[in-house]
Design a protein around this nucleic acid. Structure first.
Lengths: 210, 210
DNA sequence: TCTTTAATTCATTACATGATGAATAAAGGT
DNA sequence: ACCTTTATTCATCATGTAATGAATTAAAGA
């Protein structure tokens, strides 16, 4: 008889549409759970089931909202990410500010609690396989590096932009992916003080005027 | 009748021990195939079957030589890798050479065809999941960063060592993992010229004397 | 020559995964 | 009141995975 009682067993949802629940909420909670899981384990090692578990939802429900795993992943990383524009903006002012503007832009992007998990998820997943990397390398070249090298002059502008990017990427890795203690603990201003001159050096071959 | 003929069907090996084949050879070829696969796809996305396929061997044979997947992976990355000692050696001479010595050490390590695939395999696999990262972060702190910060003075030695490491890691990523065209094409000397002053700056807060 | 040991493939197990197609229950429109 | 749409779980499938235990063949040792 107790199975005919209608008290909702906690944690287990009854089959069928629940009372007064608007669609957007669970869809968003699936996206949130997916972001966290992809961020933690990368694309390959994340299973739809682990996402469903985290979102407290049946795995099949994910397929109701998203066609398949890759579509879900793309939505996770596409939503908040448009770094190209941000970096282009960083290179507006006078040349001697490029370095500082770039670090500050990166720190601002990764400082945002909506952008950071998506961005690190993308990082993790892309770095974990050559195949995934080949997919986004053109985007990287075109959308990021191109914009950085554009305002530079000289035949090796591409090389210098890439070297600057390498320091930026290294800093992001150290602080947000590897999470090296001293880099995590440092203030944004310390990071700027360390990194801006380096970017300036890579980009222009000169040091910032002090 | 043709199935009773004894001409060896090419590509398919007969069951049982083959003629005149010494153990070490296939074991080594499995290791080589594993290195390549782990390097290409990272730990998670690499299957024992894909390794077996590449080594032209039955999957079960892998278990004959290696207990399980993780043991195989550990052997792939443990064999050629002892970067701690190499970096410690780089910090022997006078302080004004630290930067240059460090880049050259990194370039030499990654230049070796036996070290490079194992090292990038480790990179890929470790970066792709927080769990894997937590496993080797202590090693990283103790074996690498500690050695870099040791000869430095000042209260923020750990921070400066970490920042230097961030530029090193960024360069390695750009050149060997992401494979940005201009960085791949650059000569070792160009890289040294770009990176050594940066490391020097991070480590000592000063630029190299020119 | 006989026996043991090693190298190999084959057959199978147990399980996780992504995906699909119901079934069920409520909401919303007519 | 009906019908359609939507949100949800359930049952199930096909596939791929790591792993294990034979079976088979040859080498090595006695």
């Amino acid at each position: 008889m107790s199975e005919h009682s209608q008290d909702p067993q906690p944690g287990v949802r009854r089959r069928g549409r629940p009372r007064g629940r608007s669609s957007g909420a669970t869809r968003a909670s699936i996206l949130k759970a997916a972001t966290e899981e992809f961020n933690h384990s990368g694309y390959e090692a994340t299973s739809l089931r682990s996402i469903a578990r985290r979102a407290k939802v049946d795995p099949a429900l994910i397929h109701h909202y998203f066609q398949d795993k890759t579509e879900l992943f793309l939505e996770v990383v596409h939503l908040p990410l448009n770094p190209g524009a941000a970096f282009a903006e960083a290179l507006q002012g006078p040349e001697e500010n490029y370095g500082e503007n770039l670090v500050r832009t990166a720190l601002r992007l990764w400082g945002s609690p909506t952008i950071r998990p998506a961005a690190t998820a993308l990082f993790r997943s892309v770095l974990s396989s050559k195949a995934a990397l080949n997919l986004i390398r053109p985007f990287l070249q075109r959308e990021i590096l191109r914009r950085i090298s554009e305002p530079l002059q000289g035949p090796d502008a591409d090389y210098r932009a890439a070297m600057a990017a390498s320091q930026l990427v290294g800093m992001i890795m150290a602080r947000y992916i590897i999470e090296l203690e001293p880099v995590v603990a440092a203030t944004d201003e310390q990071i700027v003080a360390s990194i801006a001159p380096v970017l300036q050096w890579h980009l222009t071959g000169r040091l910032p005027a002090q």
